[in-house]
Design a protein around this nucleic acid. Sequence first.
DNA 1: TTGAAAGCGGTACCAC
DNA 2: GTGGTACCGCTTTCAA
Lengths: 333, 333
Amino acid sequence: MHRNNITLKELSKKLGLAISTISKALNDSHEISDATKKRIKQVAKQYNYQPNKMARNLKLGKTNTISVVIPSIQNYFFSQVLIGIESIIAPSAYNIIISITSESLQKEAQVFTTLSSSVVDGFIVAVAEETQTTQKFHHFKAALTNNKPIIMFDRVLKSIPCDKVVVNDFESVFNATKHLITKGKNTIALVSTINNLSVGKSRTKGYYKAINTTFHKPIIVTAPKNKIKKTVKKLLSNKTVDAIIAIDEEASLASLKIAKKRNLQIPKQLSIIGYASKTMAKNLCPKLTTINQHGFTIGQDCALLLLDRLKHNDKPMVKKIINATLNIRETCL
Amino acid sequence: MHRNNITLKELSKKLGLAISTISKALNDSHEISDATKKRIKQVAKQYNYQPNKMARNLKLGKTNTISVVIPSIQNYFFSQVLIGIESIIAPSAYNIIISITSESLQKEAQVFTTLSSSVVDGFIVAVAEETQTTQKFHHFKAALTNNKPIIMFDRVLKSIPCDKVVVNDFESVFNATKHLITKGKNTIALVSTINNLSVGKSRTKGYYKAINTTFHKPIIVTAPKNKIKKTVKKLLSNKTVDAIIAIDEEASLASLKIAKKRNLQIPKQLSIIGYASKTMAKNLCPKLTTINQHGFTIGQDCALLLLDRLKHNDKPMVKKIINATLNIRETCL
DNA sequence: TTGAAAGCGGTACCAC
DNA sequence: GTGGTACCGCTTTCAA
């Protein structure tokens, strides 16, 4: 096996100087005279010297890379978050390793154990569905005791003491429901494919509260993603509903689709508020009113929190709450 | 609090055996007797021993991680590819570092130089727009001479000798255009925001050829993403066009949007064939006929090619061509 | 079958 | 201001 990169040792031979001198010069140590610094740097550049990161990391006991663990990348929200993280980390000295768990606990645990040994310095994670439902999180605890900080976002676990960034899911759906009520709607259903997730539950609670303080019994329709269309169809044929809050993208698209199939006038006969990316929302017809979670901001906050924690491991845990906003479009004018 | 991971040295003390013995035992060397192997493994498990990857990699001169470099993650195609790559790499012993260049040459070059020194074993890349337009690719050559194999996909560079995975862009747009002609369309325009990219050029050539062999002069409309809507508006008000081939997502969405604004009957008065994710295409109205590039497959192929090349560095270069397929939907019945 | 020791390529402490 | 050297944790000859 051959390595092509020039090393300090080789530079030292070429320059007739000690390895340590060269190392110091390249790290701009004050111990080295400006003259030799200049000379050394010039030769280093000439030979395109790149310090070996593995060696450096091994010596310093840190890896300069962070791990981002998300359940899926198809999801527009998670990819937004990813871009946010990237925007902060890329200009820093860190690298990002991205892993996708596909909502599997086993996959998530594996990622954490293999990475937390010696390949990353810390984690940013949205916990997998299976992890949330089974409430198994030994892998998180192991990483923490192994001194690898974790930042959780969106899908967070109460029982894990770490920094967290979440959306005000409860309030945002509460507000959205209230908004529908203000608009004169009086039979509002909630449609969801994510009610096994903490976020789904919070959103549903927000709906509950808004409804309960008013007039009708909650109408909650949940189904797995592949059955959500059928379920909505049933809902719309059995009940006279004049508004829908759909709390995830699949639920939103299904609701809109079925409503159109039934030739309901939107938003006159049926208003819809949902979740979707901006591009998607704007290109649907009618354009979908959405609750915007500001994934980009969340990603940035996570990255900043992690960088900070890697510097100051002793500061108190932070829970940051991002306020979602309602983007009013045609489905709810 | 637990100390960081236990090391071979510490195990050696606990077991009263030499470090080398333990290392060999854990690596299932035939030099070690089954009895001691068993004993060592048991104790290692008990203390949850995880080998330090940095040390191992430093010693072995490989990193067991690969780098994926893409221009954007917002783009559905690239995230499809990413999932494909992940599906192959995740079960392997490798990790993935993902970097986003935002189409910037400078960013791309930086990623390559920082990663190719000693943090990854190889690259999968779709080259940035700026790199393609300026034709500067010293960073690729440097990586290659540094013995880090590169797999290019979609956005590839003729002058770089490496494995490549591309879509048959020319043929697929040629075929799509022919399809429109067969449908009786006789004024077909091409709309694009990516004509500075090689893929854009190939697609345009495909359109050219299909048109030139028939009746009218090519009508080609290009603009940057933020001006594409205006440009399409102009096109549709000046010319009587009865079909559009839009060769990227923005162009597709803009074309559909403007056509609807002008109350054109689709596909009767205007047919549209475009590029978009399946979810997007199916939720537009009318549903968009798309050219499907099979990003997932491309990602898988890239990953397989890279893993293979990391094993057999001497095999001849491969250029794999994936056939795009036409998904007929409402905009072109 | 087991162990000692030489590195991998850096950093940092301590002499001079 | 410069140089010698001991590590970081692991793998791999080579000896015993």
